[in-house]
Design a protein around this nucleic acid. Structure first.
Length: 276
DNA sequence: AAGTTTGTCAACCGCCTGGAT
DNA sequence: AATCCAGGCGGTTGACAAACT
C-alpha cells in the first residue's frame, strides 16, 4: 500500500511565502506553540500544507536563526565535519546553533565544493584529486591557481608557499622525532597561518596520503591526515597555550604513532610538494 | 541596452524513521 | 507483527538576481 500524501494538496498555495502568510504563521506559533504541524495551517488560517509551514518556520522564521554569511572558521568546520559525516546535513548543522541544514547544504553545493576543487581536493572523498583527474582542464599553472584561491595577492601567494615549506619541514622533523625543532617550525607555521587567515593542503609526491593544515580563530593549528589507500583519516590540533608545554610532546607523539601505523603507504618519502 | 549565462537559495518532492495503535 | 502517520531528511528544482557578452 502506497504512502498517503501528507495533506490534501487541492486548493493549497505553493511557492514563495508572502509577508502576510509569514505574519500569520509567526503569530500562531508564538501564541500556541507547535503540537502538530498538520493542524498548524488550518488553525493559523493558511492555505499551505503542514510540511510547508514547518519548513518555512525552521529555515526562515524561527527567532533563534543566525543571519548572515558563514565565516571562514564555520566553513572550515563544515569541511571537517563533512569529511567525517558525509552529506548528513542535519547532523552537521547541529554543530552550528542558529544555522539550518538547508543553509549549510546550499553553502556546500554552491561555494565549498568549488573552493575544494580549486584547491585540488575532491569534495566527495576529501582526498587530493590526481593531476590527471583534475576537473580543471584549462592547463592553469600552479601559481595561477594559488593566486585565484587567495584572491590574486602576490604577497599571500609567497607566504602560502613559505608556510607549506615550513610545515613540510616540520613534518620531516617530527618524523625524525626532533621535537624541539618541530615545535619551533610549527610555531612559525602557526603564526604565518594565523596572520594570513589561510589554509592549505600539502601532499606527499607519489604517495597516497595528504595533509590539510589550517589555523582558526581560537589560535589552533589543526592538521588533518588523509590516507587514501587505507581509507583512513585523522585529525590532530595544537593550541597556542599548549605549544610550549608538555602537551605538544603528546601532540607530536600522537602524530608519530598515527603515521607509523600508516607505514608502508609511502609516508616516509619526504619529497613533498604543494598540491593544487 | 538587450540577451545570455551563471550563481544563489527558498521551497518542494519523495523516501526514511520511529512511535502509536 | 503489521500498518499508519507525522516529522525529519537529503536531493533537486526553479525563480530571481547578478555578471557577463
Amino acid at each position: 500500500m502506497g504512502r498517503q500524501p501528507c495533506c490534501d494538496k487541492v486548493g493549497l498555495k505553493r511557492g514563495p511565502w508572502t509577508m502576510e502568510e509569514d505574519h500569520k504563521l509567526i503569530t500562531f506559533i508564538l501564541n500556541n506553540g507547535i503540537q502538530c504541524w498538520r493542524m498548524v495551517p488550518k488553525l493559523a488560517g493558511l492555505l499551505r500544507c503542514g510540511k510547508s509551514c514547518r519548513l518555512r518556520w525552521i529555515n526562515y522564521l524561527r527567532p533563534d536563526l543566525k543571519r548572515g554569511e558563514l565565516s571562514e572558521m564555520e566553513e572550515n568546520q563544515i569541511i571537517e565535519l563533512h569529511a567525517r559525516l558525509g552529506n548528513r546535513w542535519s547532523k552537521i548543522a547541529s554543530h552550528f546553533p542558529g544555522r539550518t541544514d538547508n543553509e549549510i547544504k546550499n553553502h556546500w553545493n554552491t561555494r565549498i565544493k568549488k573552493r575544494l576543487r580549486l584547491l585540488g581536493i575532491d569534495p566527495l572523498t576529501h582526498h587530493p584529486i590526481h593531476p590527471k583527474q583534475n576537473v580543471d582542464h584549462e592547463q592553469k599553472t600552479e601559481s595561477e591557481l594559488i593566486k585565484r584561491s587567495l584572491g590574486n595577492e602576490e604577497e599571500k601567494v609567497s607566504d602560502h608557499q613559505n608556510a607549506a615549506e615550513l610545515m613540510i619541514t616540520a613534518e620531516a622533523e617530527i618524523e625524525k622525532s626532533d621535537e624541539s625543532s618541530a615545535v619551533h617550525l610549527i610555531n612559525n607555521y602557526e603564526m604565518m597561518c594565523r596572520s594570513h587567515d589561510m589554509d592549505l593542503w600539502v601532499r606527499n609526491q607519489n604517495s597516497n596520503y595528504s595533509t590539510n593544515c589550517y589555523s582558526n580563530e581560537d589560535s589552533a593549528v589543526s592538521v588533518s591526515y588523509h590516507n587514501s589507500t587505507a581509507a583512513e583519516s585523522s585529525n590532530v590540533s595544537i593550541h597556542e597555550e599548549s605549544s610550549t608545554s608538555g602537551d605538544l610532546q603528546k601532540w607530536v607523539e600522537s602524530v608519530d604513532s598515527m603515521l607509523s601505523s600508516w607505514d608502508g603507504y609511502g609516508f616516509n618519502q619526504l619529497d613533498q610538494q604543494l598540491f593544487f
